[in-house]
């Protein structure tokens, strides 16, 4: 989870990211960031998400839960 938060923070160019942070609150959370996150999840976690999958994602921990669920399935 820490590693995951660090990678998310890197993409959004933030010093750090917390589990409870609401992704959509960041002005830099746009299609480029979403694509970068999709690429990061593919490269590091073997999970392939689509932009539409992010509709139900609010916080960083929501996204982490989705990644874990996809890894198990």
């Amino acid at each position: 989870m820490n590693e995951f938060l660090k990678k998310l923070a890197e993409i959004l160019e933030l010093p750090e990211m917390k589990e409870s942070d609401q992704l959509k609150d960041f002005p830099q959370w746009d299609s480029l960031s979403v694509l970068s996150v999709i690429a990061m999840l593919d490269a590091n976690y073997g999970v392939n998400l689509r932009a539409a999958d992010f509709a139900t994602v609010n916080s960083a921990s929501d996204l982490w839960k989705m990644v874990q669920a996809r890894q198990r399935s």
Binding site: S31, V34, L35, I38, A39, D42, N48, L49, R50, A51, A52
Partner: peptide, 8 residues
């Protein structure tokens, strides 16, 4: 174009 679908 569904950009993220194409990316995947």
């Amino acid at each position: 174009m569904d950009g993220s679908a194409i990316f995947n």
